[in-house]
């Protein structure tokens, strides 16, 4: 104590700051470490989120030319945008229904196949494990644009690979991208190819986390394979289910690049390939109805939060 007082007295001004720093840096440094994150959060997330909320009650009346300073002329419209979206806008409804259908396809078709694949890959003596891991992850890291282009070829009416395969099986080919009724199945097939293997790797990681001795103990107690699977394996996979289902649902409503490319910057025949984020993009950046687009964004957020909340609740009930 007296030693410190002495040093400060000896070096009054120039070293005071350095001294303070050497004593307090451990307290201050976490804030410095967090600064880039906090600044980025404030400027590029919190502020725009607030601005979007404000915009969602406005209508764009016009644009100020760059010579006069640039900017947008707004008019307050209260809840008009939301009301219109929820009651009158048929395209928005179509987009939500399409998102829901794709989500349903993801949960009901993709997840069971992914889990099945994971179980196969986790079984002892299975070959091709390394190859399968590699193959199943590859579509996920491939750009959605590249995937879109490949599947424009595969889904072609006359010269497409998929219809050729159907013909070889003695079935009639269909207009995957031109017939309104087959657009959703086509997108679900594309989704299956892109995300099924990826999800199976999550299930596989979960399966490898199930303690072997627990399964063994159950078996010694006389439980058969199905019971062991149902009462031990599945409960252990719970967090993986939560993750896979929630990310799958959010992804379904946010689908953009693949349909945008498949339908040539459009929404497909009769809007069959229209999704909420796509609609937001069309409204905000092609029609410049930025208030309306912001309202779409907030409704989308509400839907996603609702679904996530419901999922978490459902999975919590399951635990009991």
């Amino acid at each position: 104590m007296s030693a410190r007082a002495l040093t400060t007295a000896d070096n009054p001004q120039p070293f005071a700051l350095a001294d303070w720093w050497s004593r307090n840096q451990r307290k201050v440094i976490p804030y410095i470490f967090l600064a880039p994150f906090l600044v980025s959060l404030l400027v590029f997330t919190v502020y725009p989120a607030g601005a979007a909320f404000f915009l969602s009650f406005q209508r764009v009346r016009g644009f100020i030319s760059p010579e006069e300073g640039g900017g947008v002329v707004l008019e307050y419209k209260g809840l008009d945008n939301y009301e219109r979206l929820l009651t009158k806008d048929k395209r928005f409804r179509t987009a939500i229904i399409n998102g829901a259908e794709f989500a349903l396809g993801t949960v009901l078709i993709q997840m069971p196949i992914a889990l099945g694949m994971a179980l196969l890959m986790n079984a002892p003596h299975i070959r091709f494990k390394v190859l399968a891991r590699l193959a199943f992850f590859a579509p996920y890291i491939t750009s959605a644009i590249v995937v879109g282009w490949i599947f424009t070829l595969i889904f072609q009416d006359r010269y497409g690979l998929l219809n050729a395969a159907l013909n070889a099986l003695g079935l009639e080919g269909v207009g995957w991208l031109t017939n309104k009724a087959f657009v959703m199945p086509a997108l679900i097939i594309l989704g299956l190819w892109t995300w099924c293997g990826y999800n199976s790797l999550f299930f596989l990681a979960g399966l490898q986390n199930v303690p072997d001795d627990l399964k063994e103990a159950a078996r010694i107690d006389g439980a058969n394979t199905i019971r062991v699977f149902w009462h031990i394996t599945i409960p252990f996979l719970r967090p993986v289910f939560v993750f896979v289902v929630i990310t799958g649902l959010i992804g379904s409503f946010s689908l953009f690049s693949q349909p945008y490319l498949l339908f040539d910057s459009g929404a497909g025949p009769g809007d069959a390939g229209l999704f909420p984020v796509m609609y937001l993009f069309f409204m905000g950046f092609e029609n410049f109805r930025m208030g309306y687009a912001s309202a779409i964004g907030y409704l989308l957020t509400a839907i996603i939060l609702l679904i996530t909340g419901l999922q978490l609740l459902l999975f919590r009930l399951w635990r009991v």
Binding site: F44, Y47, A51, A52, T301
Partner: peptide, 22 residues
């Protein structure tokens, strides 16, 4: 805050972020 940003879909921010970039 870190966890909260995980739940906010980026797409909500598109319009104001674009105006900010301008």
């Amino acid at each position: 805050l870190v966890l909260a940003t995980l739940t906010l879909p980026f797409q909500v921010l598109l319009v104001p972020l674009f105006l900010m970039m301008v």
